[in-house]
Design a binder for these strands. Sequence first.
DNA 1: AAGTGCAACAACCGCAAACTT
DNA 2: GAAGTTTGCGGTTGTTGCACT
Length: 272
Amino acid sequence: MVRAPCCEKMGLKKGPWATEEDQILTSYIQKHGHGNWRALPKQAGLLRCGKSCRLRWINYLRPDIKRGNFTIEEEETIIKLHEMLGNRWSAIAAKLPGRTDNEIKNVWHTNLKKRLLKSDQSKPSSKRATKPKIKRSDSNSSIITQSEPAHLRFREMDTTSTACNTSSSDFSSVTVGDSKNIIKSEDIESMETMPVIDESFWSEAAIDDETPTMSSQSLITISNDMPLQYPFANYEETFQQSHAYDSNFDDGMDFWYDIFTRTNDSIELSEF
DNA sequence: AAGTGCAACAACCGCAAACTT
DNA sequence: GAAGTTTGCGGTTGTTGCACT
């Protein structure tokens, strides 16, 4: 596949948007909708690439965008959601109507992250391990960032040769895995007390050698009256029923994802 | 008033997933 | 199913404006 030439090489404009450009884009989308972003700038008479138009519309021009400072409530929501979802800015943005992923990402990097860091440092003994920098291109190789909550890291796992790493406190009684390699919550629990691991641990080789794998037939079990310590500790939610989930692993992980993205909602067990 | 540092935010880039042919 | 195209996401960078010296 040949990469499309960049905007500059095609004589397209880059950089900050002019008011006129904004007006052209807005009126065009209001009249015709955006349809094909790639074709849009040409049709609208803009010297921009489709990607740039899309970004400008989504992050700035869209009528439903809420502008202005983030409220305390919004900031707290971001912090909570980030704790649960990691750097899934679009998922976090979906929970904050009128806010864009880009905006949330900026607020996080410029404001909230520092605030959390300060409050972390003020605590006498933080268990937080340093996050290893992992190239995005490695996502296919099942390396999962340490900073992410375990349920999401599970979700990203390859169904054939899979690494399974976890860190902070996660579930009180959950088992994930296939018949050969069931990962029990006790294991997850014990991992919490493991010493801080060094960078080399996260190399692919280390993962291949030392971590269990999951087959496509994976079993997830939630026990009775399971108090969800993480992330639901914040929301004081408790499972009252027992469920066994035995299916295609990806579906299973969607199940997890669905559950764990519910924050203030009640959990609908009827989905099973 | 000029220079410098920093925070905030807009925009870009590369990648991968999703979609289409 | 393969190849090509589009879209969406997340990381990063560039620009701007403000505070401080």
